[in-house]
Amino acid sequence: MSNIRSVTNVARMLAKRPFRVSIEGNIGSGKSTCIKFFDKYPNVEKHPEPLNEWRDVSGHNLLGLVYSDLNKWTFPFQHYVHLTRLKIQTSPPCSPNITVKMFERSVQNSRFCFIENARKHDILHDAEYQVLNEWYTYVEKNLDIGLDLIVYLKSSPQVVWERMMRRGRAEESEVPLEYLQQVHDAYENWLSSPDVGCEVLTIDADRNLDAVLEDLERYSYKILGGNHTN
């Protein structure tokens, strides 16, 4: 694990890139709210999930399609998600004053959380899984996609299911609690792995919003890169 971190840190310094922070968590765990908390920092470039891109791929709502039929649409959806995350994660900062790049979920999340979950539950055929894995392996070897910190908004599936029902996104209306449990388990497996590749800061996201925001304030020095410099 230390070797992985060293490689990531060297690559970051050589590229003179911003400190990369991925906000991770289940559907409804508060990722968007977490990112908005850092609006007050002008040195932070923030990227919520590109939902509108997923809803209109030349007229096709891939987000709606994947929720309507996971078995049929997970493969093309994950292909496109991988592309959009890759663009966000590797694009140069919008300003020379940007020292932190923060985004909602990551390329690594797609590969080690959602794709692994789809394989485990036979949502992806093995051939589809291998194609997506080859995509990720090529990208990892040829581009700097390294993360410097993961902020994990850890939540209970029942809690996020209730939140999801309250916010009422059309595409999420038929997402079962069972699927949220699967995503939760996939997160736990990924982020407890010794090969996760960077530090993981875990925040209890089952609590009320004020408590979560207090933690974000408390750990803001770490989340914003601490003593890391370009």
Rank of each mutant, 00 (worst) to 15 (best):
S2Y: 05
S2K: 09
R5K: 10
R5Y: 03
V7S: 13
V10I: 15
V10L: 12
V10K: 15
R12F: 05
M13G: 06
L14N: 14
K16V: 06
R20W: 08
E24D: 00
N26G: 00
G28P: 05
S29W: 10
G30M: 12
K31G: 07
K31V: 08
C34D: 02
K36W: 10
K36V: 12
F37P: 02
D39L: 12
K40E: 14
K40F: 01
K40R: 06
N43Q: 15
V44M: 07
K46G: 09
E49H: 00
P50D: 03
L51C: 01
W54T: 07
D56K: 04
D56F: 02
H60E: 13
N61A: 00
N61L: 02
L63M: 10
G64R: 05
S68N: 07
L70H: 13
K72M: 11
H79A: 10
Y80H: 11
V81Y: 06
H82P: 00
R85L: 04
I88Y: 00
T90Y: 01
S91E: 14
S91P: 02
P92I: 08
C94Q: 07
I98F: 02
K101T: 03
M102R: 04
E104Y: 00
V107A: 07
N109K: 12
I115F: 04
N117C: 15
R119K: 14
H121N: 15
I123Y: 07
I123L: 06
I123P: 04
H125D: 11
D126E: 15
D126P: 08
Q130S: 05
V131C: 13
V131H: 11
L132T: 02
W135D: 09
W135V: 11
Y136V: 12
T137Q: 03
T137S: 06
K141Y: 06
D144V: 01
I145E: 10
G146H: 13
L147M: 11
I150T: 12
Y152E: 09
L153M: 06
S155L: 06
M164D: 03
M164P: 10
M165W: 08
R167N: 10
G168L: 08
G168C: 07
R169N: 07
E172A: 04
S173Q: 14
V175Q: 11
E178Q: 14
Y179H: 15
Q181S: 13
Q182I: 14
Q182C: 11
H184C: 03
A186K: 10
E188L: 12
E188I: 03
P194H: 05
P194M: 01
D195V: 01
G197N: 04
G197V: 00
C198F: 02
C198Y: 04
E199G: 01
V200L: 03
V200F: 08
I203Y: 05
A205G: 10
R207V: 05
N208C: 09
D210M: 09
V212I: 15
D215S: 04
D215N: 07
L216D: 07
L216Q: 13
E217S: 11
E217W: 03
R218P: 09
S220M: 03
Y221K: 02
Y221I: 01
I223H: 03
L224F: 02
G225I: 00
N227T: 14
T229N: 15
